[in-house]
């Protein structure tokens, strides 16, 4: 695993998803393990009204610690 202490380069969410998508079945499987209810909607363009209007609200931060 990459040590976060040294991750001074931000790989970026878009570039990471592109890298996964280009890595064949292993990458697609990795995308499949992501929380697809949100991300899949983003990828297909189906965006919920709530998440679009408040993209970075504090409740998101707490959700991320789960």
């Amino acid at each position: 695993m990459t040590d976060p202490l040294f991750a001074y380069i931000d790989p970026g969410a878009g570039a990471t998803l592109a890298q996964l998508a280009l890595a064949g079945t292993a990458g697609l499987a990795a995308i499949g393990k992501l929380r697809m209810n949100k991300i899949k909607n983003r990828l297909t363009g189906k965006v919920s009204v709530d998440s679009e209007s408040e993209p970075d609200v504090p409740s998101d931060e707490s959700a991320a610690t789960e």
Partner: peptide, 20 residues
């Protein structure tokens, strides 16, 4: 993916950051 990621929430970005 860059265009889609631009609208992602923090939690979604963190999930992507954990992918291996």
């Amino acid at each position: 993916f860059e265009n889609r990621a631009a609208g992602m929430e923090t939690s979604e970005r963190r999930d992507v950051g954990k992918a291996t």
